[in-house]
């Protein structure tokens, strides 16, 4: 049971974003800009960064959500799975591998990112902006993972939930829909 009273039909981060709408707004805006805004990294690649960090932090809700989003955006389920278990074997570019390694270091501590990690990413063609965004996406998912688990939010009862969520993240991004999550409430009460 969550440490604070959250609406039962809203698992994981969704209940927290509705609990405190004023702090949710900048968190949503930041996520939308970083994961869906203009970038030379694809939306799928950026979801992989979110996935690798959430998986490293062992946050079940965020890992499942962003794995599902990456799967939908990339059109396969192998890439995200391999990124979580063995970055070097994943079917992504050498540049992405170097960026995913940086993200995983940031997850542990910002201080673990060395000039050698940065040089490697640059040698594989990463731009300063891509490195910047990788570090901040990794930082942002540390926020999410700690927020979601620190308040002990619930997992959805039905794993199919994540497929619905992935479609929503693909088609609508991270902005709050005008009706919030009322459509989910209706599904629960049905």
């Amino acid at each position: 049971m969550p440490h604070i009273p959250l609406e039962e039909h809203l698992p994981g981060i969704t209940g927290l974003l509705e609990y405190r709408r004023d702090t949710a707004e900048p968190i949503r805006d930041l996520t939308q800009l970083l994961l869906r805004g203009p970038s030379s990294l694809t939306e799928g690649e950026r979801e992989l960064i979110a996935t690798v960090v959430s998986n490293g932090n062992k946050c079940k809700f965020c890992t499942a959500a962003h794995t599902a989003a990456a799967d939908v955006l990339l059109g396969d389920t192998v890439t995200a799975e391999l990124v979580k278990t063995n970055i070097s074997a994943a079917p992504v570019s050498e540049k992405m591998k170097a960026l995913l390694v940086i993200a995983d270091k940031v997850r542990e501590s910002g201080k673990l990112v060395t000039p050698a990690h940065i040089e490697k990413a640059k040698a594989e063609g990463a731009t300063d902006l891509e490195i910047h965004d990788t570090v901040l996406i990794a930082g942002l998912f540390c926020l999410y993972n700690k927020y979601v688990d620190g308040l002990d939010t619930a997992l959805p009862a039905d794993a199919g939930y994540f497929n619905v969520l992935a479609d929503r993240l693909k088609n609508h991004g991270y902005a709050r829909l005008p009706q919030g999550y009322d459509h989910l409430k209706k599904q629960v009460s049905n």
Binding site: G110, C142, Y147
Partner: peptide, 17 residues
């Protein structure tokens, strides 16, 4: 919890770069 989590982001941003 959210302040603590936010600073985990800010600190990583500042030191990670």
């Amino acid at each position: 919890v959210l302040i603590a989590a936010s600073f985990c982001m800010f600190n990583r941003y500042v030191d990670g770069l």
